[in-house]
Simulated assay, not measured.
Amino acid sequence: MNPEMTLPFGGETPVFASRPVWCGRDSTVIGSARIGAQAWLGDAAVIRADGQPVVLGDRFWLGHRSTVHIATFDQGTICGDRVTVGRNSVIHACTLGSDVVVEDDVVILDGASVGDGAVIEAGATVFPRAELAGGFAYAGSPARPVRPIELGEVAERAERIRERSAEGIGPDSDPPQDIDPDVFVARTARLRGRVGLGAGASVLFCCALEAEAGPIVVGADTNIQDNTVIRSRGEGVVIGRDTTIAHNVRIADCRIGARSLIGIGAVVAPGTLIADDVMLAAGATTDPGQILESGYLWGGRPARILSPLDADRRTMMLRIVESYCQHGRDYRQAQEQLAG
């Protein structure tokens, strides 16, 4: 069984050491990915190596709606053998050893390293460049060691994650057929209801935009990255132009301004108002009705001001938007060639 969608990127095509044991519905593998024997990919699992390599060892297990990605300009992702990743987690531009368990709703960020035989417990965030020694269980945001752990318990935790795999992610609706030619919507993304996408916007792989009540409106040149879920069950969701919504974000009825960045794995609660020029850190959450003022980096659970949004961060945010506009054009062309 092969992934439902495989795309080249930059002339590189994914390579599997052997045919995967299982590839779930909408599973997607892209670019310079090298994946070991006996891989298992859940529903809406995404491995995206578009700009740097992803190297995954034997018996790699990626749970439903989880994402493996790279830092486009400078760092790939490497995992050892027998790595198990639960649901809705993100492995991003980092290095994991062998016999590592990453539970549900975990974010591991750029430059981090995790040693052999470690467990990252559900809901934890591993901060950029953190070095986590093997043989411990880690929890919290930032992830900190909570106790030593033996390989036998690591294997038991991995097995519990794998036992839940039969649950899947449930049915999704089909994407709309009348997408503007300046917009990229991945074939594995799912849009339902009144969804408006501005020129140059991109909705990447395995995202779900569900306008059950009010509309979802996405501004021009805004990118919605892999496995993000946006649901409107009330007044709707409005996202301004030139904004980045990173991997595996959860967004309910809210307003997000222009030129903002919502970090990996963040959760934006109903009624949140995020002003223009805001960065919300990876793994952060907002409270219902919270207002995030312009010009700051916000982080934490619930989010609080961490620092002013300096020139370097603003430049980085603009660079991401420009990069994803190009990604959208490249992916649209590759997807059209695949369909042809």
Rank of each mutant, 00 (worst) to 15 (best):
D221A: 09
N227Q: 15
S232M: 11
G234A: 15
E235P: 01
G236Q: 13
T243S: 13
I245M: 13
I245R: 03
H247W: 05
H247A: 02
N248V: 03
V249G: 04
V249C: 06
A252Q: 12
A252C: 03
D253T: 01
C254P: 04
I256R: 06
I256K: 09
G257E: 07
A258L: 06
A258W: 00
R259Y: 14
L261G: 01
L261C: 01
I262P: 07
I262N: 07
I264V: 08
I264H: 15
I264A: 00
A266K: 02
A266F: 04
V267C: 09
A269K: 12
T272M: 03
L273D: 13
I274Q: 14
A275D: 08
D277Q: 08
V278F: 04
M279K: 11
L280R: 14
A281G: 15
A281K: 09
A281H: 06
A282L: 03
G283P: 05
D287V: 03
D287I: 00
G289L: 06
Q290L: 07
Q290T: 00
I291P: 00
L292G: 04
E293G: 11
E293D: 12
S294W: 05
G295Y: 05
G295N: 00
G295F: 09
Y296R: 05
Y296I: 01
L297G: 00
W298R: 02
W298Q: 03
